[in-house]
Design a protein around this nucleic acid. Structure first.
Lengths: 355, 355
DNA sequence: CTGAAAGCGCTTACAG
DNA sequence: CTGAAAGCGCTTACAG
């Protein structure tokens, strides 16, 4: 790749930093001939101020381009109006969609969110917990990258409200919003069995994560209720990435009993599976039925469109956000809540009756 | 959708907030029998401290679970080690990938990034600029949601270094990293023309955004160099979303001159186009060639795999981040830089010779 | 309706 | 090698 650098000294000379720095409340007070107390009260609308005085203050603020320093305010008030959001990887569409929604909802209530990608790395996860602690976020929404995150207790020790979402971690002191993954896994499997499939492969996520584990349990329970023998050779472990879904599928196609259907435990792996199946010259759903999980936007757009178990993504975000903000606002105290949402089978074009 | 609420008063009773709040530097100093000055110096490794003293301080820190309050530090030092990143929509994979990379690079250099989704909404964009100003970020990386963002000047007025990426905005006081979009648009078009296509449709982004505009210019220039008449009926405007690509394609297929190839100005719209073409019972590339733009991870995974103009996403992130951090670190002063990266045509399976 | 002053938790120039 | 004290920019109880 080539890249060009243009210096542009003439048009784009940067302004020299002048000695004068940003306007503070003091500058405003001086210009408006009032105390900083009064300025503060007009900025925050927190006590009655004579209309004429208020007008003077407002004028001074605007001529100075005054923007209150949030750091100082937060330090003084002990509240930052900021929440931390830790996700495994925001470039995965499922987390991206959840994060977007949380950001939206937070924004509407006056909270900014600091988005942290733990990158499925416990070290980075710990490091981010420390950063959030140091930045004095008011609360944290947490989607774990592992099953037993160690440093979460430090949040609790510091009285920082915590909401655990999507992936269950055995933690006593948090509100929790999860999916009924076992049942969802069961439904997906039943759909395939009812279509006549008997050799059903499953591409899982990391074995220790609760969504993967529980969906698998539903898968197994359903097989057993239908009297079908569970075949370990039809199970492949992925990591929820497209690429891993592709690799897993190539392995399934190259050895062992031939599946006629694949249950991928998320849509991204299903899309990877699709690519592998096509590459092998097989067609979906003619030669292979495929069902995903999540219902990311893409699932409806690939060809054939993907049958999937739809997670209520907006509802997950809404519950997580309001659980947290209720705590922060003090409108809810006492015992923790556990919200279990249910998924919904969404029939599209990637599954068909076994001929 | 059904959701269940379990109260769990027994196991999960939340700890009452005790009167004792978080440990401060004063608490540490007291416990270690030293001044706060000394504690500060051991925390920051900023002057020699007697080994025995240092050990006492370290001990006190750990028994108190001390975490320095970054707000106080930032207020005092006038530096927050935080950068603001404004993107139109981080649930769009292109921006998600750029953002991920910037976050990674920033993290390695000790910066956190505040991610702001302007949502293609100038109002929200302005509001975020104010928030970033109030939070006293050290610098901003900006991908605009419109062609003439109004409040960007406030950053410059406040001496906050600014890097504009991806979408050009006519602004004098910023470092800039862009793509050579005109040439990239030209190359994509030439590829289709060389395959024998003459009726080439183009699905654009919002007309006023520089990437869309410039890629179109390359498209037109190439047509004209090949002596092909430009047909306005073959141009459809999208908004870079999957859905808009689908809608645009359905319109193209339902009326006007029939194209044999489509140039979508990003991959997401190309994926939408793919869905529409398939839905119409046409095959890619047999009946319709299709080329995208960006090379998001997905582009290689759909079927057929998508021929596209690959943007050097990691390099864009790297340039933007280092341009900004150099300014912040003071290792670069003076005139602004303009980095123009070039794209690369990536041939895959969605384009073919016109029979 | 308004203001003087303390204090949030740090860092750092100054002094020893 | 160490400490006393000022000050970053706000908010707010207290007083008038």
């Amino acid at each position: 790749m080539i890249f060009l650098l243009y210096g542009c000294a003439n048009v784009c000379a940067i302004k020299k930093h002048t000695a004068m720095s940003r306007a503070t409340i003091k500058d405003v007070a001086q210009l408006a001939q009032v105390s900083t107390t009064t300025v503060s009260h007009v900025v925050n609308n927190t006590r009655a101020v004579n209309p004429a005085t208020r007008a003077r203050v407002l004028g001074a603020m605007s001529t100075l381009g005054y923007q209150p320093n949030i750091l100082a305010r937060s330090l003084r008030k002990g509240v930052t109006k900021t929440i931390g959001l830790i996700v495994p990887d925001a470039s995965n569409p499922f987390f991206a969609e959840v994060a977007r929604k949380i950001e939206d909802l937070g924004f509407k209530q006056g909270y900014s969110v600091i988005l942290c990608n733990s990158d499925n790395d416990p070290i980075k996860q710990t490091s981010y917990i420390n950063t959030l602690l140091a930045k004095r976020v008011d609360g944290v929404i947490f989607i774990s990258s592992d099953s037993a995150p160690s440093d979460l207790s430090r949040l609790v020790d510091n009285h920082i409200p915590l909401v655990v979402a999507d992936r269950d971690v055995s933690l006593e002191f948090a509100d929790v919003v999860l999916l009924d993954n076992e049942r969802a896994g069961y439904e997906a499997t039943r759909h395939l069995l009812e279509l006549g499939h008997r050799n059903i492969a499953c591409i899982t996520g990391p074995y220790d994560l609760s969504p993967s584990m529980q969906r698998m349990e539903g898968f197994k329970r359903c097989l057993s209720e239908f009297g079908i023998q569970f075949q370990p050779q039809l199970i492949q472990t992925g990591d929820f990435s497209i690429q891993s879904g592709k690799v897993a599928t190539l392995r399934l196609l190259s050895a062992g009993p031939k599946p006629t259907a694949i249950f991928a435990l998320n849509d991204m792996m299903a899309i990877g599976a699709m690519s592998a199946v096509n590459q092998a010259g097989l067609s979906i759903p003619g030669d292979m039925s495929l069902i995903g999980f999540d219902n990311i936007e893409l699932a409806g757009m690939v060809t054939p469109s993907l049958t999937t178990v739809a997670q209520p993504i907006p509802e997950i975000a809404r519950q997580a956000t309001s659980l947290l903000i209720e705590r922060l606002a003090g409108t809810r105290n006492g015992s923790n809540q556990k919200v279990i949402l249910s998924a919904e089978l969404l029939l599209r074009d990637s599954t068909a009756r076994l001929e």
